[in-house]
Design a protein around this nucleic acid. Structure first.
Lengths: 255, 255
DNA sequence: CGGGTTCTTGATTTGTTTCAATCGATGTGG
DNA sequence: CCACATCGATTGAAACAAATCAAGAACCCG
């Protein structure tokens, strides 16, 4: 997606902070746009943490000087209504800056959905570096635009798709973002779901029961197989695509 | 929101391209971060156009070298399903870059909802300038993050709010973005709606009939007055806020 | 094996859509 | 100036999809 990493391949990591040298998110993540000295500056105040599924990610409320990077795993970002209704608004996977610099994000909650590693560092330092380093700035910008696109796709789903279309579209999306190792495997396509039924509901604006019913329905229709609750195999991808209610070109039909 | 304009106040416009000197979006928009020479470079291939309500904004499909800036008015950005179902995903107001550089935006449609002026210029030139001009880059980045926040707010609305809550939240949002002149007026707060009932439906993921019914209901409850279809006066703002189902802090109640 | 959690399935209710008719404003031509 | 067509908005009745309420089944872990 982006050629210009400021630093060389993995074997050239000498001179970098130790924690960064071992970091999986090193090259692809935002840090890949950083020079040795910048990385050292950032790593100074940084700390790593491992999270189990479900553990909340504490964001810097009240303007504390923090910034969270997701180094491995998947988290859910949610917004809430006063009575507890929850909507998952994004499902970032590593490597990704959740809670990015310059953002004004209000009442967003975050929690790990898989095992996850996060790296917390000083927001002010990253912002300062970004202001001097166009490559980093550009990376962050492109990242934000990608998240905007994802968000808008979900908007279409929540606003206009039926329950069946929502879970079909969700399965398709999970299929497309599956890991490279899973992608290269032969045989029928298998999707590992990072979310529970309840979380899928919170993502798709549905109840857990409706999600479950749609799974059963797709199963009965011979479109998917569900060997266990966290896995789905695609029997008939063609039909799943049809069931998702595909998006169309943006030329408004009539105003 | 952002102090660092690269150039001085309005009376210092000498030396700028003529069309830019007269441009309303000049300082606040992205162009405000540009130097004289950069602005001249950009204005070279630029063209202005006035759009009536409903007219589609032609985006550069198939990678044509174009970029659209909204100079005045409001447009709707929509996504579509194959059978024509429409979801409005954003309602940008001037000054704003719709169809911004570096974005990969797929099948997004755009149409003016009010009278609108747009400025079309060469995408490659803006991208080139952005890569050299950190202030512009930063502005575009902050802009993208703001749009992401708006999008996520709408996500919460579409995923978890009832019809009544949706139109209440919509009215509140329209109230908050009303013009400065309208804001300073005395007397009961009046909201001018830029959208028709049908467009409000497309924005809130509802049908036109449901939108209409909710307006009538809020009227009957003494919360709003509807002097005509395009205007709403707030009788009881407190109750409207309650009816919108207010958002809560992001600390997940339980996972 | 028990105890808890998650998932599934069924019956019923409810909110929203769909279908259909009417109203009101605006504009046109006779 | 008044019938008449048009378009958006409103209202009503019926149909429907998803939520809610309520059991049960499957699975996991100690």
């Amino acid at each position: 997606m982006d050629e210009e990493t400021a630093i060389g391949p993995a074997d050239a990591r000498a001179g970098f902070p130790r924690s960064c040298a071992a970091c999986l998110a090193w090259e692809q993540g935002a840090c890949g746009a950083l020079s040795r000295s910048e990385l050292r500056r950032l790593a100074a105040g940084a700390s790593r943490r491992r999270l189990g599924p479900g553990s909340p990610v504490r964001f810097a409320r009240d303007g504390a000087d923090q910034c969270v990077s997701l180094v491995s795993g998947t988290v859910k970002l949610s917004r809430f209504l006063g009575d507890g209704r929850q909507q998952i608004i994004a499902l970032p996977t590593a490597p990704r800056l959740i809670d990015p610099p310059f953002g004004s994000r209000p009442d967003v909650g975050a929690a790990a959905v898989t095992e996850a590693d996060i790296c917390v560092f000083r927001r002010s330092v990253l912002e300062a570096i970004a202001r001097e380093n166009p490559a980093l700035q550009h990376r962050l910008h492109v990242q934000a635009l990608a998240e905007l696109e994802e968000s808008r796709e979900l908007l279409l789903t929540l606003g206009r798709r039926t329950a069946r279309e929502r879970v079909s579209a969700f399965l398709l999306a999970m299929f497309e973002r599956r890991s490279v190792t899973a992608r290269s495997e032969a045989g029928p396509a298998t999707i590992d779901l990072p979310l529970s039924r309840s979380e899928i509901g919170d993502y798709l604006g549905l109840t857990i029961e409706t999600v479950s019913r749609q799974f059963s329905q797709l199963k009965r229709d011979g479109i998917i197989l569900v060997p266990d609750a966290r896995r789905v195999v695609l029997e008939d991808p063609r039909q799943l695509i049809a069931a998702a209610g595909q998006a169309a070109a943006g030329n408004s039909p009539t105003g």
